[in-house]
Design a protein around this nucleic acid. Structure first.
Lengths: 257, 257
DNA sequence: CGATGTGAAGCAGTTCACAGCG
DNA sequence: CGCTGTGAACTGCTTCACATCG
């Protein structure tokens, strides 16, 4: 593990709270134990719903409404939030803005993390333009590509730089989060360089399993896997329908593998 | 639920097997119970690893190697595969090509599912060009966009059509899977139209929670949520490092309750 | 012998249902 | 009174460890 990774510039929002998890280790629940992984994965969804409420001027929200907006049931929401501390008001609900702050803090988004995106193709561009939400908590330190024809082209408000600048960009901006949006054959090489440069968190869009040393956190987003999971359920659904409805709607439009 | 959805064209690969799950309901394990959701989510990963082995001419693989390639432990792999049937050879391993077939069949990928992509922006284009793997099991029925400037433009080997063709495309191609790659404000509207047209499986890339009727399956891929989860772990890691820096060997000591 | 397939144990996450509090 | 916060029950997934069999 390299030495260059540090904390990004602090947002400097002070801790207002009294009742909750004000001073513990980051990443731990109010009771001192680590936050459940499943809870962590849902906090961003709650946060988005809360921002949306806040923008509409809603100042207070009950667990029923918030959970509906987030697509989960209310018991789960309450338990998730209770891991952060006791931030609700019984008989009333949650203060929207205060909860935004607490959830942001729990996720570590009171800082803005510099992120480097490797790959300036369609996917890299889509990410860079994702705007709005990505920009809450993140800033794009650079978009890198190996295609010299892309260099200098602006995407969002960042210009594409050559991938040879990778190590410089990471060091100069103290980047700890890297996004890999290159074709599969190039991905492991990019990953190795990111890790060597000090990046310890990687979001991988290339369709392969990256090998990384211990202490490096990889998450993958795989477009085709999601489709395949959908296909599985779709087939089950249609099989059930065919089973039940003896209706000859089968149209074999040939196409072999 | 609408009436137009049907099974896609059948691939027509016959069932070779003897020992396993040859004739049961699709989507059920060898024991007749449904496949665990967690298993379904990993099968595509195994499948990719298997394709890779097959292309390299490997004919047999043991659970250790395959599980390593897929990034899981071997017990999990074996249990997952055992849900499909008993397709391994004790003392030897698994026949790669045969397992490719069995996993494909379990996922419903011996058919090629027509998919409609709504949104011809960077994300839609990235999806359409994802190539290779998406094309195993899927074909793009159409890419739709509301921007008339994009109409006719070819992405991969499909031309962009206007979103007003949505209902026609779904009906003509018996599309059951739709991908939403439009900006958030347009997403719910697109979703409603897809559902009304008969689509029952939706892959949503827009950063909001879609409302759909029962019987419609939505999966979401959220670029910013993944980043936020990474940020959480990154912060915990950096906090721990700062905390512990005066490092000596950790003396095993009592953990307080 | 060596790797699969699988009961059994262990763990994590979800849901229930209600006590507790504003 | 109404909604939060939470023990307790439950469900599902993972891991272990070994009997089984080619």
């Amino acid at each position: 593990m390299s030495s260059s990774a540090g904390s990004p510039d602090s947002g400097g929002i002070p801790d207002i709270a009294g009742n909750g998890n004000g001073s513990g280790q980051p990443g731990t629940a109010a009771n001192g134990r680590p936050l459940p992984e499943a809870t962590i994965a849902r906090l961003p969804v709650y946060l988005r719903a809360l921002y949306s409420l806040s923008e509409r001027g809603v100042s207070t929200v009950a667990s029923d409404e918030l959970s509906a907006a987030a697509g989960v049931n209310s018991a789960k929401l309450r338990k998730d939030l209770s891991h952060l501390g006791s931030y609700g008001i019984r008989g009333v609900g949650y203060d929207v803005d205060y909860l935004v702050y607490q959830v942001s803090r729990a996720l570590g988004l009171t800082q803005r993390w510099p992120v480097v995106i490797v790959g300036g193709g369609n996917l890299g561009r889509a990410l860079a333009n994702y705007g709005g939400f990505v920009n809450r908590g993140f800033k794009i330190a650079a978009i890198l590509d190996s295609d010299r024809g892309l260099i200098g082209r602006r995407i969002g408000d960042v210009a594409v730089r050559h991938v040879s600048d990778l190590e410089d960009v990471v060091a100069m901006n103290k980047v700890v989060i890297g996004v890999i949006a290159v074709p599969a054959p190039a991905a492991q090489g990019v990953c190795d360089r990111l890790v060597a440069a000090g990046v310890t968190s990687i979001l991988n869009f290339a369709p392969l399993v990256l090998k990384v040393p211990d202490g490096v956190d990889v998450r993958k987003v795989d477009l085709s896997i999601e489709l395949q999971i959908l296909a599985f359920h779709a087939r089950r659904r249609s099989a059930v329908r065919v089973e039940r409805v003896p209706e000859d709607e089968q149209v074999p439009e040939e196409e072999s593998v």
